[in-house]
Design a binder for these strands. Sequence first.
DNA 1: AGATTTCGATTGAATGCTCGATCTATTGGG
DNA 2: CCCAATAGATCGAGCATTCAATCGAAATCT
Lengths: 196, 196
Amino acid sequence: MVATSIDPVGKKDPKEEIMKAALKLFTEKGYFNTSIADIRQLADVSTGTIYHYFKNKEAIADALFEEVVHSLEDSIREIRKLSNTFERLRAIVELFFELAENEPEIMRFIVAVRHQEFLGNRPALSLSSPFQKLTQIMEEGIRTGELRRMDPLVASGVFYGTVARMVLLRLEGVLEKRLEWYLLDTWTAIWRALSP
Amino acid sequence: MVATSIDPVGKKDPKEEIMKAALKLFTEKGYFNTSIADIRQLADVSTGTIYHYFKNKEAIADALFEEVVHSLEDSIREIRKLSNTFERLRAIVELFFELAENEPEIMRFIVAVRHQEFLGNRPALSLSSPFQKLTQIMEEGIRTGELRRMDPLVASGVFYGTVARMVLLRLEGVLEKRLEWYLLDTWTAIWRALSP
DNA sequence: AGATTTCGATTGAATGCTCGATCTATTGGG
DNA sequence: CCCAATAGATCGAGCATTCAATCGAAATCT
């Protein structure tokens, strides 16, 4: 009479359960190796429920993509408020490294999933707004003399390429220590590459 | 009576035609979006012929992987003969940039295909022998003092991450000029990051 | 309060289709 | 005459999606 649900803690919003299960499976086995039946089982819902909340399988991936991009945008927007380019870039490295340790599935979805293969018309993540914002930070840094004169696309390529590669190596189990352990070396290398 | 084939030039080795078609389709649409029928059509052979030369669809991808890795190994082996670390790393950047312009499909297969999703038990390309060789070059360079003291995995992460990212940006059409145009900036950044 | 209606949420069996793989038949070069 | 090579029809498993039926909690009525 008091509680609306038997389970004292879990609200079990089905939509969230479905997305959580899909994220886990998509990043673990890949989109095409994941069947609706797999998601159904892990999320502990019926087929019908899945199709009640999502138009089809692709729409689940689409919702995940949207969510991750928005969350990244928010983080980057916050980071842009920092006072100088050094702080901004360093904060982005730390954000990615921390995410990789604490939310490996989300990070895998960002750096290791080929979205174009199943998300019909989305621009590649390489062209999505967080990446554009990164290039803007580079342009600004070069303009103010905080970064060396160079093509901004090369600057963001060096930066994102390095960070994403370190994250991937960690997610694949090549790096045995936590990413914080590699932070100093990584950041030193990046800053030497970009600073004047 | 003279020629063994009607076509004056093309030998049309079916196995090669199949692999060529598969490479094109796998890199363009992805492994799972490519059907045997697609390959059959593009390679202009029958289903029976495909299964005569390959056990199954996966075996085609496997053969491609093998071929690419071997060819990469050969190139890296040659490059290791160069006299110092500077020359070696620079040669690798040039190799990747040149491959991206002249053999975009092969390059896409290297940097943009998630092999683990369909090649059962292969180690990720990140762990394959060309990548290990790269890390060895880094270790050696650090030992001889040609590179700054740092974790060799970070060194190879910075290096390969940057190169692969530039290549990918080019393949995705983000970089409008040929990669040679970005070579100087890219190499300067890499060398600043790694040199003592 | 109790009975009745309503409607979104949920279920899972049924459907239909794509596609990898197989199989039998035919060909033609040595 | 033999056997590798080729052809293409056929099969059947797996999978995304649909659908008719049921639930259950609130809203409305008596």
